[in-house]
């Protein structure tokens, strides 16, 4: 461990947890003058088995739905105490605590205009409680509540475009990032922290347990998601989508099947070429919309 590590060893994240790597990268950029409000989820459970904690910064756990509300309280309280200067206030939550359960608190925080950086670690299902589908789960992913079988070929419906919805609040800064692009991720966190007002960063966080892939592939899968165009790296200041900036364009996009092949949650699709073609079409359309 590096001597200045703020997220230390001994946490109970699964071997190969993409989110744990993402948290380290965020805190390396944020530094020690940081307060984190953490929603319920894997991150909270795996880092704070009482009486221990993996955090070396002030950290608060509240409930599943209110990381953004608690962070708002921290922001206002520090102002009242005259201690707001030089402190980063962050909210950490998973996709369940952001896309679904914490959505109202998030929207409220954005609308009130708190100076908070909200980071969502997006592993595309409720992993902590046993891999249930949520509104971040991509189409046709098999989860315990959208099991692929005779009745349905995995999750029905689309993945909620959370970052676009957040950016539509016309906030200071919105971005998407992955652990396979650390410089890009850290630059975006820096910009988010320096922004006056609310900022939001969605970090793609591969989950070996929930997605069923070998634990050494978390970084490779993040790269593959970007290289296929399934996950697009972009940033936006304000709410005008004409100003969106793609921060990394794959030179040549890989077929989505390459990404599906590596994960058990999509294994059933390999026998359903028409479904793969459908996703490929949707990804092509999305990439065309982004201009590549």
């Amino acid at each position: 461990m590096a001597s200045d590590e703020l997220f230390v060893s001994g946490h109970r994240g699964c071997a190969g947890c993409g989110m744990a790597t993402a948290v380290r990268m965020v805190l390396q950029e944020a530094g020690p003058n940081t307060i984190v409000a953490n929603a319920t989820g894997c991150l909270e459970v795996m880092t704070t088995g009482y009486p221990e904690t993996a955090w070396k910064i002030p950290w608060i756990h509240a409930a599943f739905e209110n990381a953004a509300a608690v962070a708002s309280g921290v922001d206002v309280a520090l102002k009242k105490l005259g201690k707001r200067e030089g402190v980063n206030v962050l909210a950490f939550a998973g996709d369940g605590g952001t896309f679904d359960i914490g959505f109202q608190a998030l929207s409220g925080m954005l609308e009130r205009g708190h100076n908070i950086t909200y980071v969502v670690f997006d592993n595309e299902a409720y992993m902590n409680t046993g891999i249930q589908r949520c509104s971040s789960t991509p189409p046709y992913a098999s989860t315990t509540t959208s099991p692929a079988g005779r009745v349905i070929p995995g999750k029905q419906g689309k993945k909620k475009p959370i970052s676009k919805i957040v950016a539509a609040h016309d906030i200071a800064y919105t971005a998407t990032a992955t652990i396979a692009h650390p410089k890009d991720l850290k630059t975006k966190i820096k910009k988010a922290l320096e922004s006056e007002g609310p900022s939001f960063v969605q970090i793609f966080s591969p989950c070996p347990t929930g997605w069923r892939f070998p634990s050494e592939l978390s970084v490779k899968l993040s790269k593959m998601a970007v290289d296929t165009g399934i996950f697009v790296l972009w940033e936006l200041e304000g709410g005008n989508f004409d100003n969106i900036r793609i921060t990394y364009k794959p030179k040549e996009r890989k077929p989505v099947e390459e990404y599906f092949k590596l994960q058990g949650r999509f294994r059933h699709l390999l026998k359903m070429p028409e479904k793969i073609a459908e996703i490929q079409r949707e990804v092509d359309e999305k990439c065309a919309e982004f201009g590549f």
Binding site: T47, Y50, E52, W55
Partner: peptide, 15 residues
């Protein structure tokens, strides 16, 4: 409030 006063104490737990 289950306040934890030992930052980084997960080091006590060897994984």
């Amino acid at each position: 409030g289950a306040v934890n006063t030992e930052p980084g104490s997960s080091l006590n737990y060897k994984t």
